[in-house]
Write a protein that binds this DNA or RNA. Structure first.
Lengths: 332, 332
DNA sequence: ATGAAAGCGCTAACAC
DNA sequence: GTGTTAGCGCTTTCAT
């Protein structure tokens, strides 16, 4: 391994100077800068990052814990974070929480022990208080975890607006009797999307009977089950807003079994714009969840907050409509 | 930050002893071991990993570069690697190559500069020679990149067998005139799967006319296009083996447009068992690509090779059939 | 079985 | 603008 000493010897300067040109920090003569760079080049010098970390107490690494690595979101999210971080020459260390509070905690400890300079968290199970406390030890940034005292450190999606837009779109297409099938209401996402649905409906002057709303869980089976419930309740509406795409696929499946044609007899809108949405038949109309951009934003926020100690501020993204083939225009 | 010194003082031993109990290495009296552990506990001591790395020239981190973070495979892959590594208390640092040779190289450099103890590579664009050379600098392990001098460091899938099994399944269902729609043939995956198809067909005594095989690329549009080509060529067969699920979805779409009912008029089998396969209608029969298990195996191989300097040996997984609803039994 | 001491390669005061 | 120097917190011979 080539050390700084060898570089400084070859360049005929001190180690301090080499360190300076590496960190671009101090004013170094253009001339010596060049000499040093040449020496580094010639030797194929690579700074030892462990030594850098030890001496500077900065690891140049950011830890990320995600609740589940398997989900459909994970790809765009990692991609967004990775590319932003790498452009800044920061390393990304990841750990999974598997949607369990203890495992999430353990993942965080694991990362903190590695002296990451900051933490990017996409977790579901941790309490606000815990996060706030953690933030005393190491700067914490949150993706899609809005309800917290750390809100200025959070990038999130306006789920209420999404619910509103989805419902509104259905209304604009002439639908009036619109059901809402939603996931676990303890999740802010579900809660807010439902809220948006209600706002749109009430704005349109439509009273929503209780049995138009069915809460199950954010999976295909949840959507299927909810649709069955709706059918048992003799729901006579023309459209369904599903809390996410997977649930919408479940609705599609149920409709298929009952010989209900989508979108002719029933219109359907999802949420997330997951990869699969464009592969099902008919292709699913849905709201796009801009995870890639959100991930980039969160990484940028972290970078700023950690290395430029800038005051970060909450950033909220908007879900946008993706028109495909599961919603029909109703004749008046 | 609590340092080792404080621990050793409290425990009334030397730093060396503390270091010993941390690393579980030397024979330390049970008694002192307990005292040290208590001291660590009491102080809430966390070893500084930068210092550990510097002193031991081991970073306890493994770097992973993946070609593209967005694909459907990466979830299971990251999950498999992460959980295996973490159980061994090793950190996972990731970088993306985005399917471009230069970016893949850059990602590798990035990781090597961080002194990772080893590299887990899932890349497409790098030459064998380059990989071999890299392996001189740092232990390299490959996922799904079989054709290399490093084959004992590689976990891969038996694609030939997969192609064989897919085709064989179709044959067993009574099909004889079976087309094969495949991705870029420069990719070993495509090449081998096609090979398997040919083996099964020839075993069944069926001569395959050239125009039963269409090579496009591993995407929906590629499958769609290939199916259109097949149709233009007046393909009069009863089944299609698509090189991967995405291509199969393209076939499904094309069939739909032409009013060809799957599986009644045309049977279809895919490859990968991507998440989406179970959401399309009809649900896609396909071969399962055990990425999670392969990722785990590769991580274990890396762990062994790096930290126990065990001789690793190639491990190959088999794709298995997942029966769903796109293949019909043909009457004889 | 345990301790003393010499680094690991770098950064950051502080001097000049 | 550049050099000197003292660590950063740990591992690891080498003694004892």
């Amino acid at each position: 391994m080539i050390t700084m000493k060898e570089v400084s010897d070859l360049a005929g300067v001190s180690q301090a100077t080499v360190s300076r040109v590496i960190n671009g920090s101090d004013r170094v003569t253009e001339k010596t800068k060049i000499r040093v760079n040449q020496a580094m080049q010639a030797l194929g010098y690579r700074p030892n990052s462990a030594a850098q970390s030890l001496a500077s107490s900065r690891s140049n690494a950011i830890g990320m814990v995600v609740s589940k690595l398997e989900g459909p979101f994970y790809g765009p999210m990692m991609a967004g974070v990775e590319n932003t971080l790498r452009q800044a020459h920061k390393h990304l260390i990841i750990a999974a929480g598997h949607g369990d509070a203890d495992l999430e905690r353990e993942a965080i400890e694991f990362l903190v022990n590695r002296q990451v300079d900051g933490l990017l968290l996409m977790v579901e199970r941790l309490e606000d208080a815990e996060l706030v406390e953690l933030n005393q030890r190491v700067p914490v940034f949150l993706i899609n975890h809005p309800v917290t005292t750390l809100s200025h450190r959070c990038v999130s999606l306006d789920n209420e607006l999404g619910g509103y837009r989805a419902t509104r779109y259905l209304l604009d297409k002439g639908h009036r009797r619109i059901a809402c099938i939603m996931g676990q209401t303890w999740k802010p996402d579900a809660h807010d999307r439902l809220q948006g649905y209600h706002r749109a409906m009430s704005e349109a002057g439509i009273a929503v009977p209780d049995d138009w709303v069915v809460n199950t869980y954010f999976e295909l089976a949840g959507g299927y089950q909810a649709m069955e419930t709706l059918l048992e309740r003799q729901f006579d509406g023309t459209a369904v807003f599903a809390g996410n795409d997977e649930m919408a696929f479940g609705v599609l499946e149920s409709a298929e079994h009952h010989g209900i044609r989508v979108p002719d007899q029933l219109s359907l809108i999802g949420f997330d714009n997951s990869l699969t949405a464009q592969y099902v038949n008919p292709k699913l109309t849905t709201l796009h969840f801009p995870m890639f951009e959100m991930a980039q934003a969160s990484a940028r926020m972290a970078l700023d907050g950690i290395y430029n100690k800038a005051e970060s501020q909450a950033s909220q993204f908007e879900p946008t409509l993706v028109e495909r083939n599961t919603v029909s225009q109703l004749l008046l």
